[in-house]
Each structure stands twice: as structure tokens, then as C-alpha cells.
Amino acid sequence: MPFDRGSFAFTMFDVPEELPENFLALFAAKKAGSLDSVTAEPQFGWVTGHHLLDTTIDEASAQLGGSYYLTLRQAVRKMPASLLNAVCKREEQAYMRANNLEYVSSKVKKQ
């Protein structure tokens, strides 16, 4: 949820030392990739608090009210459950037609 409207969860950290001068550049070097680069393997990267697709990490985008807000985003491309269920149902119906069955048993036969 963006921090300019609505609610969001956050964790505060007490940094025991001064941050380096280039700390925003260090976060930007590990920014999240584009949605096109997301695969079945989890992808991690930093984004700003505006929204999960805001990968422009600079003074203007990461700061609000004197504090910095960054989010570590984890993204993975996976098939939605409703689509997976539809594909399974289609395969089940094709199997029933091919084998002249009225239903497919949900019990697994042991060999």
C-alpha cells in the first residue's frame, strides 16, 4: 500500500553508526527489477514506499517527513489458483472423454 494514502506496515531500525554519504546509491544499486524480468524464481530488490513498482530510489522518492522509506520487494511469477484449477479441470475432462469415464476417482491407486 502506498504511503500517500491508506495504511502500511513498517519496521524501524536503529542504525548504530552514521549512514554512508552514498547510502541511497547503495540501495539503488540493489533495486528491484522490472516486472518483465520476474520469473518462477523469487526476485528480491528495493523499492520506495510509494508503490511496489517504484524503483527510482533517490532523495525525492525515498524521503517523507525527514525519514527514508524503502521496501524490500519479493516477486515471483506464478499461475493464479483459479487458472490452475481450470487447466486441471480441462485435463480431467479430456481424460474422462478419452477413457469413456463419467468421473475420475480422487483416490490414488497403490502399485
Rank of each mutant, 00 (worst) to 15 (best):
S67Q: 15
K78Q: 11
Y103L: 06
E41I: 02
G6H: 12
S67A: 11
S106F: 03
F3E: 03
S61F: 09
E17D: 14
D4M: 05
F3W: 12
A28M: 05
A94F: 04
T71M: 01
D14T: 09
F3S: 05
N85D: 14
K78N: 07
A60S: 11
A62E: 01
V76P: 00
L64W: 11
K110E: 12
L19V: 07
A98Y: 15
E59L: 05
P42M: 00
F27P: 03
Q43L: 08
L19P: 02
D4T: 14
T11I: 01
G33L: 06
R90N: 05
A60K: 04
L72Q: 06
F27E: 00
A29E: 11
L70S: 10
I57Q: 00
T55D: 09
K109I: 05
K107Q: 10
S82Q: 14
L72P: 02
Y69C: 04
T39W: 01
Q74T: 14
E91N: 11
A94E: 15
F3I: 06
L64S: 09
V108E: 06
P2K: 06
A60L: 09
A81I: 12
M96C: 11
G49A: 02
Y95W: 10
T11Y: 02
L64F: 12
S82C: 07
P2D: 09
L101E: 12
R73I: 12
S106D: 13
Y95K: 09
R73Y: 13
A86Q: 05
P16H: 09
Q93A: 09
S61Y: 10
H51E: 04
L53W: 04
T39Y: 05
P20C: 07
L19G: 03
G65W: 06
N85F: 03
E18P: 15
V15W: 12
L24N: 02
L52K: 01
A28W: 01
A9E: 08
F13N: 02
M1H: 09
Y95F: 08
K109Y: 03
R90Q: 12
